[in-house]
């Protein structure tokens, strides 16, 4: 039973090289936490997992009616529901992941103050839970495509790349907010605001092509613009062309947020148990 063990040193300011090894060793905890959150989410509900379908479907209908039928915004020849849904998918993934991660550490405060594990597991598992919802509502998109007889081009193969990008954006911002939330509970009030406002300033209900070229680069300072545009392009193809300068700015910002979020989280992680 006894395995030869390397000596573990605990010291102030001691760089923990073991951290990433530990993260790997605790990967099953990642799975279990996500599994717990999914199991618990739909306990004692009547229609259960159907909620994951119902919410995006209703949002899509409202957006299609408001932006497509009433405001008559251009869709570039694509059925408006598909246009909306291809933006709604990554946005909802981002929004729910952001709200879940930002409160994840506080929600698991009793774990953090009583057990050791790499704290990164907590926010990552929250993103995974939102990813599951995302995958489920992806079914609606497939349904819509069949309904409208829409066949995507080969560029659909790049979709996983953009999913990864959404993941990075959500996790990066989530790492910042969750770590800040431990110390400053103010951020509890910031997140719903970001999510609510973000829906309007991101190209969810409309195509980003309606933003005039002069403003396009500025518009792309919202990193979700690049993410949603890329996502839409992968699904709709040529009809939704990518505005490259803006796209690159968005992607760059996503990476900055992700890397800095990871850095900030790792830097503050040690003190979580003392102040949570």
């Amino acid at each position: 039973m006894q395995t030869s063990q390397k000596e573990l040193i605990l010291e102030a300011n001691h760089l923990d090289r073991q951290y990433w090894v530990d993260l790997w060793r605790y990967r099953e905890l990642l799975y279990f936490l996500a599994w717990r959150d999914i199991l618990v989410r739909y306990k004692q509900t009547v229609i259960g997992i159907a909620w994951a379908l119902l919410r995006p479907l209703a949002t899509m209908l409202v957006f299609t009616v408001v932006f497509g039928n009433l405001a008559r915004l251009p869709s570039g020849g694509v059925p408006y529901p598909i246009l909306v849904f291809s933006g709604l998918l990554p946005w909802q993934f981002f929004a729910s992941a952001l709200s879940e991660t930002s409160s994840s550490l506080i929600d698991n405060a009793n774990l953090i103050s009583k057990v050791y594990f790499p704290r990164l597991i907590v926010p990552i598992s929250s993103v995974i839970v939102s990813f599951i919802d995302f995958a489920i509502s992806g079914v609606i998109l497939v349904g819509l495509m069949i309904w409208f007889g829409f066949v995507p081009g080969l560029q659909i193969l790049t979709l996983p790349l953009f999913i990864l990008l959404t993941f990075a954006a959500a996790l990066g911002a989530g790492l910042w907010l969750s770590a800040l939330n431990v110390k400053y509970r103010d951020f509890r009030y910031v997140v719903p605001f970001i999510v609510q406002l973000g829906l309007y300033i991101s190209p969810v209900g409309f195509s980003s092509q309606i933003v005039t070229d002069g403003w396009r680069l500025l518009y792309s300072l919202n990193p979700m613009v690049g993410v949603i545009d890329g996502f839409r392009w992968a699904i709709l193809g040529g009809e939704a062309y990518i505005y490259w300068p803006g796209f690159l700015v968005s992607i760059g910002l996503v990476l900055v947020i992700f890397v800095s979020g990871l850095w900030y989280f790792r830097r503050t992680e040690e003190s979580f148990a003392d102040i949570i």
Binding site: E7, A12, Y116
Partner: peptide, 15 residues
Amino acid sequence: LSRITKPTTGRVAIK
């Protein structure tokens, strides 16, 4: 000792 919080000074070695 259970690594929940870091020491301010000193050192712990665990095998």
